[in-house]
Design a binder for these strands. Structure first.
Lengths: 359, 359
DNA sequence: CTGAAAGCGCTAACAT
DNA sequence: ATGTTAGCGCTTTCAG
């Protein structure tokens, strides 16, 4: 009795096969050819390894090689479908190329971000993929200084020279605003958060630019980036109620839109008759909603592919050869026009409903 | 130049302080007292360690001690708010007690579950928390045989003696059904998936039992556990349309309810006037929806607490002392009554709206 | 009270 | 062509 759980070791393999442990290691690491190990031996090793289901001990291997084949993924909120999707795509591709992903959410909290980066460092991740919150320049500099390959996405840190993949949010909101204007909506509001991060500012700027070109005044609501959904709904509710001339609204991110839809519903406003709606970032719900919501869609597949390609490229690079060239990629958005932003064909044929609109 | 990234090692500490490396190690592991190391030395060590920000190499430590302080969490779908919440709570508590969580989603796919379990095993996790999909009895047996502490939750594997935390879903749906009957809804349908897992069967059984007691016939729709949301919506849409006498419906899980709400909305049915709705499992959306949706809420905090407490208890146990006693915990649900399941007070005072009801 | 030394399981340079 | 061996960084007896 006692512990019966003895794992098979490389030693056991070597002993059983009466070859040296180095031979086994070499074969297992695909270096049989270059070490001129006979095919016969190589085959015997492989066969026996297969037979007993031997798996090398990752810990020992990593300790020896200094490589863990693990990538740390630090996102804002893994339960947000945008991040969940990108993370899933990244994980899938990384897996195929022999890398594992461990992820964590920062909730956009700098302290938590720092803690997570430091935790991943302690765990010796080979590389980082980070959706940076504000104020973590120092930590990111530190990992860069250590030559750990790192890619940022969704936003970047303007003060730092790094790889990053972002989306041209300004262009996205610009197009969306033009689309609304073309549909005849003249009082377009923009609801965003109080964050000053690059991606949020860009989205706001695109909207402002479109209006400025037409010499129309912007109408901007910044809500606090709170976790309290009722509070957010109330905020948006108040804003819409106070601006009864407003006939269209663009939300700068998916969860704001969801709360916005709830606020609009509580105000008993009809979309798009009373208020047109466009959301930045797509979501299952926006497709399913009645009416379907027009969105500025981000190219999630492309984001994921770029992120992982760039990271793996640098991971494969011999570590002594400094990583001089940083990639910065800006991807385009796509305006997906659905019912929520399209003018209705005049008084609806089946005239019905409609109650308390603005007073 | 060249690699300047040298990390501080325990060696460096010992050298600098002119003490032995063992002393440093002992102090760092809180064994100063029991090894009768002078407080003076202990303090010097701690101070210097702090100063240079020394962090022991986890890999080396784990290789030596055989403990990684990592727990593998295998859930069905981390982007489902139920699992996301429980995972988050578990992570938080584990963190405080020095354990890290790595998680992965199985999508309820046995092959993927097996792969993940095996991956976690290779990574030498100290313990497992698993939401088991069907058909993974063998893999779970294997980790149990290796004496790796394991806790299942949400459902269990009837053929296996393990720790598990589940919820009394049968009681939950039973109460929900009675509530609907009391409200005067007489034709209550139950929409569930085609899964035969313990938790889904229990939820169905509670509903059936309640109706049987009143000698009412059950009306059950099983939809395929597909990923295609349009397909699911269409399925539910068809079911409701074909059963026009049905005046209430219980959905067996949160995402079914979401698709169900979409189907109901497309059918232009009013909740609860035309159709009352109850969802198993709460969700932000159900609170926010108009009307708010009645739910059978699961005690997420309690689930998380039980899971982690039991796991940590076994993790702390000296490994040679076999883990004889398995815990099985069954927690109660709570019926949270909201507008969607409450009879309206006769013709609504503010009479308005309402269009095409069933034809 | 402290230090020397033996590994944990594996890789890879160096012998043979 | 294959075997020997020195570590990777840490913990932990066991002798001083």
């Amino acid at each position: 009795m006692s512990k019966v759980k003895k794992r098979t070791l490389i030693n056991d393999i070597a002993n059983h096969l009466e070859v040296s442990i180095a031979t086994v290691s070499l074969v297992l690491n695909g270096k049989a050819k270059q070490s001129r190990i006979s095919d016969a031996v190589a085959e015997r090793v492989l066969k026996y390894v297969q037979e007993v289901g031997y798996k090398p001990n990752h810990l020992a291997k990593s300790l020896r090689t200094g490589k863990t084949h693990v990538i740390g993924l630090v996102v804002e909120d893994i339960s947000n479908p945008f991040f969940a999707t990108v993370a899933w795509l990244i994980e899938k591709q990384a897996f195929e190329r022999g890398y594992r992903i461990i992820y964590c959410s920062t909730d956009n909290d700098p302290a938590k971000s720092k803690e997570l980066i430091s935790m991943f460092r302690e765990r010796h991740v080979d590389g980082f993929i980070i959706v940076p919150s504000e104020g973590i320049e120092e930590e990111v500099s530190a990992i860069l200084r250590e030559q750990t390959p790192t890619v940022l996405f969704d936003r970047f840190l303007p003060d730092l020279v790094t790889n990053y993949i972002v989306v041209d949010g300004a262009q996205g909101t610009y197009e969306a605003t033009l689309h609304l204007l073309e549909q005849g909506f003249m009082n377009i509001a923009f609801v965003t958060t109080d964050s000053t991060q690059t991606q949020m500012e860009a989205r706001l700027n695109g909207y402002v630019r479109a209006l400025e070109e037409r010499q129309l005044p912007p109408l901007i609501k910044r809500v606090a980036a709170s976790k309290d959904s009722e509070q957010l709904i109330a905020d948006i509710h108040g804003f819409i109620k106070d601006n009864s001339t407003c006939d269209a609204v663009i939300f700068s991110t998916n969860y704001l839109s969801i709360y916005g839809l709830e606020a609009i519903s509580r105000l008993q406003l009809q979309i798009p008759q009373d208020l047109a709606v466009i959301s930045y970032d797509d979501h299952d719900l926006f497709r399913l909603y009645t009416p379907a919501i027009t969105v500025i869609a981000q190219p999630v597949e492309s984001i994921a592919k770029n992120v992982i390609d760039i990271l793996l490229e640098q991971l494969q690079q011999p570590s002594d050869q400094a990583i001089a060239n940083n990639h910065s990629v800006v991807l385009p958005t796509t305006l997906v026009v659905r019912k929520s932003s399209v003018r209705q064909p005049a008084p609806a044929p089946a005239a019905r409903k409609k109650a308390a609109k603005k007073k």
